[in-house]
């Protein structure tokens, strides 16, 4: 944070090989740091008009581009609400954008699937089928 007090932030990403080397920006055609980060206040994000968005209000930042998703999120259809569907009985927690999505790399990484069901042990098998093969008998 201190750096940016003396150094002005650049619009381009050409400094990335010097600073913020860990950040690999892969956010579609959103290629510039200052599209989202506020140029002077490093703890804030940037609105369309250049005004600041507090870090806790990150949803408003993402909503600048992802309007339809934001609409879904507001309706509870995005962001996997947890806790209580009936808010009169308990608290509902809604996840914010960056709790799930890495803003620099919003595409989800591959997930390891949990164990598959097995072909039922008691069921019969065709003689032509390879009995060692526990996987999909179709392929």
């Amino acid at each position: 944070m201190e750096c940016h007090k003396s150094l002005t932030a650049s619009w381009s990403t050409n400094r990335l090989w010097v600073e913020h080397k860990s950040v690999k920006l892969a956010h579609g055609n959103n290629k510039f740091c200052l599209n989202c980060h506020h140029p002077t206040n490093r703890n804030a994000f940037k609105h369309d008009d250049g005004s600041e968005i507090a870090e806790s209000e990150v949803v408003a930042l993402c909503a600048r581009c992802h309007g339809t998703v934001h609409r879904d999120w507001k309706a509870g259809a995005h962001g996997r609400p947890n806790g209580y569907w009936d808010t009169s009985l308990g608290r509902q927690q809604k996840l914010t954008c960056i709790q799930c999505h890495d803003p620099h790399h919003p595409k989800f990484p591959m997930l390891q699937s949990l164990p598959a069901p097995t072909y039922p042990k008691r069921a019969a098998r065709s003689s032509s089928e390879n009995t060692q093969h526990e996987g999909n008998p179709k392929h």
Partner: peptide
């Protein structure tokens, strides 16, 4: 469909 797939998804 296939129900027996495993490994990394999707």
């Amino acid at each position: 469909s296939d129900q027996y797939y495993d490994g990394e998804v999707p």
